[in-house]
């Protein structure tokens, strides 16, 4: 990371290799919008390029990059409020060869994720999909580790409830998520 700060463009290329897919997934799982996710990933690398001088040794690099990623997304939604009700465009990706039932459950779970309030969804994406340790997530969202664990627990409880509702009425709309989710708030 030192090299990035000291201004080597190639190093940014290495970072791109390492982080662009995880960052893309962070955004994709959070927003359900592929084009927007691509845009935001570009924005993150532009910000890294621009603000590499602000990186301080001793800070976990991953936390720094996700901090930038969160802020880029928050700034995006602050600038352009979505006018249409939120509907995840993304068909849940499912690994090939899944038995039909498992595929169906995976799809339901994906939809349940998208119906979670933004803050809870973000927490699950960071902890479960990005596999950040609770300590890093705590620093990222600016609270204690114990609080993160409590929030994870609540998020999982709510996910379970939504999942059950969807199982009972699979046709129910995802639009309910819209009202709760936007715009996301900047957590300090």
């Amino acid at each position: 990371m030192l090299q990035v700060r000291d201004g080597a463009g190639e190093m940014l290329g290495v970072l791109f290799e390492r982080y662009h897919a995880p960052l893309y997934n962070f955004y994709a799982k959070l927003t359900g919008d592929r084009a927007l996710s691509e845009d935001l990933v570009q924005e993150v690398f532009l910000r890294i390029l621009r603000h590499r001088q602000t990186f301080r040794d001793g800070t976990p690099f991953r936390a720094w990059i996700y901090q930038i990623a969160r802020n880029a997304r928050i700034d995006h939604f602050r600038k352009s409020r979505p006018q249409v009700p939120f509907e995840p465009e993304m068909a849940p990706a499912v690994a090939p060869g899944d038995p039909a039932q498992q595929q169906q459950e995976s799809e339901l779970l994906h939809r349940a994720m998208m119906e979670l309030p933004e803050e809870k969804r973000e927490l699950l994406v960071l902890c479960r999909f990005q596999e950040l340790p609770y300590e890093d997530v705590a620093r990222l969202v600016g609270c204690g580790v114990a609080t993160v664990k409590v929030r994870i627990h609540r998020a999982m409880q709510e996910l379970r409830q939504i999942f059950h509702q969807l199982q009972a009425a699979p046709a129910s709309s995802a639009q309910r998520a819209a009202a709760q989710n936007f715009p996301p708030r900047r957590m300090t």
């Binding site: 290329g13 897919a21 999982m156």
Partner: peptide, 26 residues
């Protein structure tokens, strides 16, 4: 169980255009 199942939602692959855009930006 749901926590385990979450892992079964596979990752999305970013499009190759993203890399081209990054190169052009750099």
């Amino acid at each position: 169980g749901l926590w385990k199942q979450l892992a079964l939602i596979p990752d999305e692959q970013p499009s190759p255009a993203g890399r081209a855009r990054f190169d052009a930006m750099l």
